[in-house]
Structure formats: C-alpha cells, structure tokens
Amino acid sequence: MTRADYKGEEMVIANSVDKIYANNCHALKKVSVTVKRGEVVVIIGPSGSGKSTFLRTLNQLETVTEGEVIIDGIKMYDPSTNINTLRENVGMVFQSFNLFPHLSVKKNVMLAPLKVLKLSKAQVEEEAIKLLTRVGLGEKINVFPSQLSGGQQQRVAIARALAMKPDLMLFDEPTSALDPEMVGEVLEVMKSLAEEGMTMVVVTHEMGFANEVADRVLFMEDGQLLVDDVPDKFFKNPSHPRLKKFLSSIL
C-alpha cells in the first residue's frame, strides 16, 4: 500500500509501543496513541518521561523494542516498507534547530527536495523562497544559519521540513532553546500551520500554546502515557493525580 492509496482517518497509530535503550533504560512502556488527520496533539510531562523518545519512534530515529507504528497507513516495521520514503512524509523540528551550517538558508531548504525528491532546481528554488517568505524570512535567503537569531533559525528549520510537503509534522520542544522574546514568532508559525490543517505532534512546555491550539493534550510520566484529554478538561479538571501534581508544580 502506498501513501496515495490511503484515505483513512488515522495519521498516526502507535500500538502498545515499548522502548528499552541499550543501557536498559525503559523509556516507553506500552504507549498507545492515535492521531487523526488534521489533529494537533501536544505532549507534556516532566524531564526524562519519554516524550522525545516517543516522538522519535514516529519517524524511526529510534526503533521500537516492542509494538507497532503505522504512519499514514504505512506499517513502519513491515519488511516491504522503505523507511526513507516514510520519512519524506514526516517532517521533524528539533530543539537545537540542527540547520546545516555549511549551507545558506535557501540551500538548507532546497537540499532534500533536490536530492531526495529529485525535483528540478528552478522548481525547488521557487518553492523554497515561497516557504521562507511565509515564515517571515524572505529577506534572509542567502545568509548562513550562524548569522540568524535562534527564532529565525527555528523558522528556517520549519520551512526546511515543510519543503518535503509532509502530511505529518513532529516538533520536539521547538522553543526550549530560544530566548523568551523569540518564542512567540515560532509559535505563531506553528499556529498558522495548525490552522491550515497540518497534522502535528508537539512536545512543548508552552501551556498557552497547548491550551489554545491543541485538539488533545497527552501527559507522560516515567515512560507511561497517563492522560489523553481535550485541553479544556486536561488543564481545568485534570483526571490523574500525577498530572494534578505536575500542573501545580509548573504553574
């Protein structure tokens, strides 16, 4: 089955996923999550609870020890699945931006469409400029990443991921490495993306964003998924004592 054939409602199905690292750290314990097409799901939880690990199993930056992952109808661990093809459809934005420092901003955005999708240079360049303009960096297309602020770099990283025209976007604490005054500009881009109907899974500590943009909020602790709720109920009427404790500790 290819991505084009799949019209199902579920974009992400993680079925009882277990992850045990090589050092025997049990990072994920029977985590099951379903994300529907167009949904924005925010994951919160204390440090070391397995949020990043879970996010990274969704594009196989980490392999699972046990369980099943299905992305856009494609079974990740089916022997016939090409992981690179699956990843083309899943954009990822990292806490530390991870822009390619040896390439200009424009070339950062163009590299994957050129080398992976093998599109024509003219077409890719036009698309890159469009995307960079969209995230507010139309003036900066020829500078190197080191000449940009953190907020600008993160917006380039988002444009770079979008250039592959993914159906799913993963964000791992995209604003945690930013100075406070730059958090807003990145969240703004993410919000507009959500409004356009992008399916998003976001690990963040920005409770305001979760409350405003998320369709569902998940709470993880100690490798377990403890709460999966709509934001209103999640924040105002937390259903789990650990969540109650966590929320009171951060607010």
Binding site: N59, L61, N84, V90, F94, A112, V116
Partner: peptide, 9 residues
C-alpha cells in the same frame, strides 16, 4: 538526524 528525518538515505 536532521538529514535522515528529511528522507535522505
């Protein structure tokens, strides 16, 4: 990781 997550082999 960034390169691989963009679908590069």
């Amino acid at each position: 990781e960034a390169a691989r997550s963009l679908g590069m082999n």
